[in-house]
Nucleic acid binder design. Structure first.
Lengths: 336, 336
DNA sequence: TTGTAGGCGTTATCAA
DNA sequence: TTGATAACGCCTACAA
C-alpha cells in the first residue's frame, strides 16, 4: 500500500462546512472575528475530513515557514564526535519546542555547500542558526543579508555590524582565569594565544592582558598557537626561552594547554608547583591530561537556546542586540 | 541590517534573459529541449540576478519537496546520549548527500507529538524515516498510509504489510550468538528474552531456539526481561532457580546481560568459567562491564543509509522490499 | 524548441 | 463578520 491518498484541502473543508475558504482559513488561524457557529461548523468539517493544513501552500502565500535551520559546517562524523555540537543542538531544540517553530538540522557535508545554500535561500526556512566552532569559515557570512541569521560558536570578529552573534564571554572568562592565577600568587603569567584572525583569540588575549594590567603585572609574555596541541607546545618552548622563570600559563584552548603540559614535563618543570596551567573549553583534553587542567567551561546548551531565542526574535521583527555574551565558569582542577 | 531584500524570481530572470518563464524553468530543471543560446541567456540572467529557485513554490506546484524527515521519538537529551541514534543519522545523512534530497531532523519532544505530525502531514517532506529504538511507540504507524515512511530500529512485528522496515537481522544474529556458545562447549544455554511485544525480542528468541534445536540441545530455559539491567537480573535469578547447573546465557540486550552478570557474581559464579554470557547491541554496557561482554554488534550507520535508500526508492515510485535485514557481527570478548 | 495559460493550497485585500 | 478575488513563485500540459 503506497497509495498515498491526496489529502483534503481547505477548499474541501469549506464545502463541507458550508462556508467560504476565507472563513476556514480564519478558523484555522484562530482569527477572533468569526462567529461561534462558523467555528463549530468548520472544526466539525476539519475533524470529519482529517484536514491538515498544507504548510507549503501556507508558506508560499504568507512568506513564512515557521521552521528554522541549524547549519553545521562540519562532516557528519565530526559533528557527532563533538559533544559541543550535540549540546548546542539540544539547547536550540529545547527552546524551539516552546515556540511554534520547527528545527531543521542541516549537516552541510563538505561535498555540497551549494545544496545547503540553495536550501537556505530557497525560502525553506525563516532563518538560520550557524555554528562555526573552531573554524573561521566565512562561506555563510554572505547569507546574513538575505536571511535572518544568528552565528554561534566562535565567529569572525570583523565581518561587519550586520551579523548577529551569540558567543561565550571570552574576554571576561580570560580575565577571570588570569585573576585566578594571580590569586594563586603567580606573577610571571604567560599566554598562549589562538589564531589571531579569530575573534575568540583576540578577546581572550585581551582579557588576559586586562587582568594583568589591573594587577600591575607585566603582560609581555605572549606567543601564538593555532589551537592544536602541537602549536601549544611550540608556543610553550618559545615562552620558556624568553623567560625560563615564568610561573604560570594561560592557554586559549585546552588542546594548546595540553601541548604546553607536555613541554613542561619534558623540561622537568612540575605542574602546578613550578608552573600553573589554565586552559579553555573544558573538553576531554582538559579532563584527561596529567594533571587535569583548570579550564574555562563554555555553556553550549545555553548557547544553543540563546541562539534560537535571538533568531526567533529577529524573525518576529524585534529589536535584538547584535552580540549576546554568555557567562562562563572557571573549573579549577589540579593544574593550578 | 535586517533588510532582507526580496529575492529575484523566475519571472525576473525571464525578463532579463528575454525569454518566457517556461524556458527559464526548463533551464533550471535541466530539460534537454532548450537551445544552447537560450540556456546561455538564462544562465547569464540567473547569475546576474543571483537567482535561487524558491523551493516552496516549486514544491507547491510539483508536489515534491526533495526533503525527507528523520523522526526521533525521544527527548533531545536521550537522543544525543545514545550513540546508536547518532550513527543512524550519520548513515542517513551520508547516503542522502549523494542524492538531491535534504535531511530534516525532527526531534519530537514528548511535549508536542502533534507539532511533528502536522509537520509531516503538512507537505513539508516527501517521506519520513522513523526510528523506534527500544520502544514500541506506535504513534506514527498511522502515518504510513499518508506518506512514504520507513521504520528503523526495532519496530513492531505486526502492524500490517504496508510498513517498510529496515532492521538488523535479529534472528540470524541470535542464532550466530548461540552457535558461538555451543561451539564453546556449552550445553545448558539459557535465554533472557526482551519484551514479548517487540519484534526484535521474538526474532532473537527464535534464533536462539533454532540454534539449540539444530544442535539437538534443549531450548526450555527462557525467562523474560524488559531490556533493563534490573529485568535482566530478575530473569537471571529465575533461570538459576530453574537450573542451577546452566552454563551459558544469551541475553537479548547488553543491559539485561549486565544485570545477569551482577547476579552471577552475587552467587559466586565465575564468568565465563562457570557461566558464559552473551549480550546484544554492543553498547557501553557491553564494553564497560566486568568482564567485557561478548555481544552482537548492530550496524547503525548501515541502517541509517539503508533506511534512506529504501525511502528514496519508495518516493521515486520503485518497487521496494518491505523488509530489509542488515547483517550483524558477533564481537567476542571475555564473557564467553 | 518556445510560449501561453491554468493550477498547486493558502493567505491577504477589499467590498459587501 | 463573511466572501470574492487576486496574489505567492513555480511547474506543466497544450498549443504554436
Amino acid at each position: 500500500m503506497t497509495e498515498t491518498t491526496s489529502p483534503p484541502t481547505l477548499e474541501m473543508v469549506a464545502a463541507v462546512a458550508g462556508v467560504s475558504r476565507s472563513t476556514v482559513s480564519r478558523v484555522v488561524n484562530e482569527s477572533p472575528k468569526v462567529t461561534p457557529e462558523a467555528v463549530a461548523a468548520v472544526n466539525a468539517a476539519i475533524s470529519k475530513l482529517g484536514y491538515v493544513p498544507n504548510r507549503v501552500a501556507r508558506s508560499l502565500a504568507s512568506r513564512r515557514t515557521f521552521s528554522i535551520a541549524l547549519v553545521i559546517p562540519e562532516t557528519t562524523a565530526r559533528f557527532f564526535a563533538d559533544p559541543f555540537f550535540a549540546s548546542v543542538v539540544q539547547g536550540a531544540a529545547f527552546h524551539l519546542a516552546k515556540t511554534e517553530y520547527t528545527l531543521t538540522l542541516l549537516i552541510s557535508s563538505e561535498t555540497d555547500p551549494e545544496k545547503t545554500r540553495r536550501y537556505l535561500q530557497g525560502g525553506n526556512v525563516d532563518g538560520a542558526l550557524i555554528l562555526s566552532h573552531h573554524t573561521d569559515d566565512r562561506s555563510y557570512s554572505e547569507l546574513a543579508g538575505r536571511l535572518p541569521v544568528v552565528f554561534g560558536g566562535r565567529p569572525m570578529s570583523q565581518e561587519g555590524e550586520d551579523a548577529y552573534v551569540v558567543d561565550a564571554d571570552n574576554r571576561a572568562a580570560a580575565e577571570q582565569a588570569t585573576r585566578h592565577l594571580i590569586g594563586r600568587g603567580r606573577t610571571r603569567i604567560a599566554h598562549i594565544a589562538g589564531r589571531p584572525n579569530m575573534g575568540a583569540s583576540v578577546d581572550r588575549l585581551d582579557g588576559w592582558r586586562r587582568a594583568l594590567n589591573a594587577a600591575g603585572l607585566a603582560s609581555d609574555l605572549v606567543e601564538g598557537g593555532d589551537f592544536t596541541p602541537h602549536g601549544g607546545a611550540d608556543a610553550m618552548r618559545r615562552l620558556l626561552e624568553r623567560d625560563p622563570g615564568l610561573d604560570a600559563v594561560f592557554a586559549a584552548s585546552d588542546q594548546m594547554a595540553s601541548g604546553a603540559l607536555a613541554v613542561l614535563k619534558e623540561r622537568g618543570l612540575r605542574v602546578p608547583a613550578d608552573v600553573a596551567v589554565v586552559g579553555f573549553d573544558n573538553n576531554d583534553f582538559a579532563r584527561s591530561s596529567t594533571p587535569p587542567l583548570t579550564t574555562v567551561e563554555q555553556p553550549p546548551t545555553a548557547q544553543g537556546a540563546k541562539m534560537a531565542e535571538v533568531l526567533v526574535r529577529l524573525i518576529e521583527g524585534e529589536e535584538v542586540e547584535h552580540f549576546t555574551l554568555l557567562e562562563t565558569r572557571l573549573i579549577v582542577r589540579e593544574s593550578s
